[in-house]
């Protein structure tokens, strides 16, 4: 019986981060027309989304395959918990430490990034490698 070749998924991290970073810069440039503070706040809002999301993706793809399904699901739950906690901590840190902050720019950029996240996950799928 020939050895079975297993398909391994690899998450295109760099491509993903590049597209998210480009989107953040575009949104920041749009907000910078209002004021420099708004552009800076928009950039911070995007970063608050990108860092926990990168952790989530990294953690979810640590294990693969049917034999590790229980580890995949366990890691997914833990990654989601840590992602929500990191988001809360980052928001709290920005509101406490960053003075002044343009709140509409911050929250709008964050919300746009969150809303576009499923689309990005759909278009930039993990690539199967042999």
């Amino acid at each position: 019986m020939p050895p079975t070749r297993k398909r391994i998924n690899r998450l295109p991290f760099l491509q993903w981060l590049a597209i998210e970073g480009g989107l953040i810069i575009v949104l920041s440039l749009v907000w910078i027309t209002e004021s420099r503070l708004a552009g800076y706040s928009a950039f911070i809002g995007g970063l608050i989304y990108v860092i926990p999301n990168a952790y989530f993706a990294h953690r979810m793809y640590r294990f693969e395959g049917a034999q590790n399904a229980h580890l995949v699901v366990g890691n997914m739950f833990r990654a989601e918990t840590v992602k929500l906690a990191l988001t809360a901590v980052f928001f709290a840190a920005v509101f406490i430490l960053m003075e002044p902050v343009h709140v509409p720019a911050l929250l709008f950029t964050f919300a746009v990034m969150v809303a576009l996240s499923p689309l990005m996950r759909w278009f930039i799928r993990p690539k199967p490698q042999r």
Binding site: M60, T87, P118
Partner: peptide, 16 residues
């Protein structure tokens, strides 16, 4: 993974 992105959108905005 794609569905998780749809699922956590509302709680993430809520946290903010």
């Amino acid at each position: 993974f794609i569905m998780a992105g749809l699922l956590d959108a509302v709680p993430m905005i809520g946290v903010g």
